[in-house]
Design a protein around this nucleic acid. Structure first.
Length: 262
DNA sequence: CGAATTTGACCAAC
DNA sequence: GTTGGTCAAATTCG
């Protein structure tokens, strides 16, 4: 496993170098091709080994699930602090038991997706995830230094979208946030036309490294938080004027997780 | 002034 | 009784 992580980190370093060379100058096409080839090979090999490893582990009885978060934090915690690096932690899909009354559904959570999101630079807020969320609560969590914030889609009532998320700073690394998305989005872009300008804006907000890394990893299932729901099926994806008259709140308001323990 | 956030209270699960 | 998730009144912001 250590070897795979090393490969991934090496690949990320190559991506960083590529990103730097792209931002500082226009490298020759041959260099670009060579660089992309190296990155592709590295991530491809890592993915292949990981697939084999997972298949092997899954064949063993009562194995603990592989948790990317733990591995990342143990091997190179500083890495996540520099970029918007998302690591899928776990994905659980459970059917919602509609036969139960509301108050008995606490543990029946439907879809849940947890990702780690590194703060940009040394800011105490996670980067924008291209959706508008409305904060509806904050709680001190036992055993956690930082409070957990609860968000739901800005247009939850308008579109009856059940999407929610929880944001919590990690004790081990205050510049990394664990973001848990709950419930699938019932609001779809087909219900709410967006302009191409908006679409451009949203993708432009995502640092290049994320797109590059996603593309290189290859295993689309492992990057569901990046490319699948909830990222592209939410009305709240649209920044700024989304047509219903309301406005975006500032990232600092949406992610005011800077408060420490009380 | 409308919309979003804050925060204490409430409620159900454990 | 404790804890996590949500509600809603009060407050803040643009």
């Amino acid at each position: 496993m250590e070897e795979i992580m090393t490969m991934i980190f090496n690949g990320i370093n190559l991506v960083k170098e590529l990103e730097f060379s792209l931002s500082s100058q226009e490298p020759p096409e041959s260099d670009l091709s060579s660089s992309l080839g190296s990155i592709s090979t590295l991530f491809g090999d890592a993915n292949e080994r990981l697939t084999i490893l997972l298949a092997w582990r899954n064949s063993l009885p009562q194995q603990e699930p592989v948790r990317m978060m733990d591995m990342t934090m143990q091997t190179e915690p500083a890495l996540t602090q520099d970029h918007w690096l998302r690591c899928p932690v776990m994905r659980t899909v459970e059917a919602i038991d509609t036969s139960r009354p509301r108050h008995q559904k606490r543990r029946i959570i439907g879809e849940e997706e947890t990702v780690l999101v590194a703060a940009v630079g040394r800011m105490e807020i996670p980067p924008d995830d291209n959706y508008t969320w409305r904060k509806y609560g904050q709680k001190e969590i036992l055993g956690s230094t930082f409070p957990r914030a609860y968000y739901r889609g800005t247009h939850q009532k308008l579109y009856k979208c059940p999407a929610k998320k929880q944001v919590q700073r990690l004790d081990e690394d205050p510049y990394t946030f664990r973001v848990t998305y709950r419930s699938s989005h019932t609001c779809h872009l087909t219900n709410f036309p967006i302009s191409s300008a908006h679409a451009t804006t949203t993708t432009a907000n995502v640092p290049a490294i994320v797109n590059l890394t996603e593309a290189m990893i290859g295993n689309m299932d492992s990057v569901v938080p990046l490319l699948g729901e909830p990222y592209f099926n939410h009305h709240c994806l649209v920044p700024g004027d989304d047509g219903d008259g309301d406005t975006w709140n500032s990232p600092s308001q949406r992610y005011d997780m800077s408060s420490g323990p009380s």
